[in-house]
């Protein structure tokens, strides 16, 4: 089949015919009903988690009110708020950075490479920040439960302590694994597209990732410290409950 024949068939499609309901939509309707691209999925992951964290923040503030006068719990809540503030700041900055790099007006190679480089660099931050939310919801949630049911932090047996800690660990680990799997899926998706573009595109992205990763150690260390802090916080609350 000749080139002209292919183009003739293509030109039989009538541009003016409105085949989609979406064509009649206004700007506001389109914005409110948009669906997910890799960029939107990754953005939504962080945005939804920020909502979850704000719920955790409210719960911590409620605990401050409920347990006013109980120094151990006050210390835990203040520590939790500090931890939450730091994680949220990192997450917010990551979100802003992502908005800057995810520009679909660039060439396809640049656009896909930018997203891939960003995800590979920030995957650990995504995973840890989102997993940390579990602790930030679980601990204040547990404290609110104790307050509503017992009016105080209920002393626990060693077995209860083990059960509560295990639940927290399972929740955190499963959130971490879920985010890791989602990010892995998106990375594979981008790998395929870049390798379809040409071999050099993928190599270009890999080189850029290696170079930029060297600059990311500080923030990674910071996030790991924050994660450890979160677990220490959990231990303190449960330990004080046992005591």
């Amino acid at each position: 089949m000749k080139d002209d024949e292919l183009k003739n068939i293509w030109n039989m499609i009538n541009d003016d015919t409105l085949g989609l309901d979406a064509m009649h939509m206004t700007k506001d309707q389109i914005i409110s009903t948009r669906s997910g691209s890799v960029q939107n999925k990754l953005r939504a992951m962080l945005q939804n988690d920020l909502i979850l964290k704000s719920v955790g923040g409210i719960a911590l503030l409620l605990n401050l009110v409920f347990y006013w006068g109980t120094s151990d719990v006050i210390f835990i809540c203040l520590g939790g708020i500090l931890f939450l503030g730091l994680v949220t700041t990192i997450q917010w900055k990551t979100l802003q950075e992502f908005d800057k790099i995810s520009n679909p007006g660039l060439s396809t190679r640049e656009s896909l490479s930018n997203i891939l480089i960003f995800i590979k660099r920030k995957a650990n931050i995504y995973e840890i920040c989102i997993a940390a939310s579990q602790v930030l919801i679980y601990v204040p949630g547990l404290l609110i439960y104790f307050y509503l049911v017992y009016g105080q932090v209920k002393p626990m047996t060693g077995m209860s302590f083990a059960v509560f800690t295990t639940i927290a660990l399972i929740g955190t680990f499963s959130a971490y694994s879920r985010v890791r799997a989602q990010i892995k899926f998106h990375i594979q998706y981008l790998h395929i597209s870049l390798s379809d573009l040409n071999e050099n595109s993928l190599q270009y992205a890999f080189n850029a990732i290696d170079n930029k990763r060297k600059q990311d150690h500080l923030i990674k260390i910071l996030v790991y410290i924050l994660a450890i802090f979160g677990f220490v916080l959990l231990m303190v609350v449960l330990k004080s409950a046992v005591g």
């Binding site: 409105l18 085949g19 989609l20 979406a22 700007k27 389109i30 009903t33």
Partner: peptide, 30 residues
């Protein structure tokens, strides 16, 4: 709309996905 519509048709396989992609492209353009 012609360009956006053709891209939406090529990258999807049913009406619902076409609508989704059309909207997504419009959103990204804006």
């Amino acid at each position: 709309k012609g360009i956006i519509r053709k891209v939406s048709m090529l990258y999807t396989n049913n009406r619902e996905d076409q609508e989704d992609l059309f909207q997504e492209i419009c959103f990204q353009i804006c």
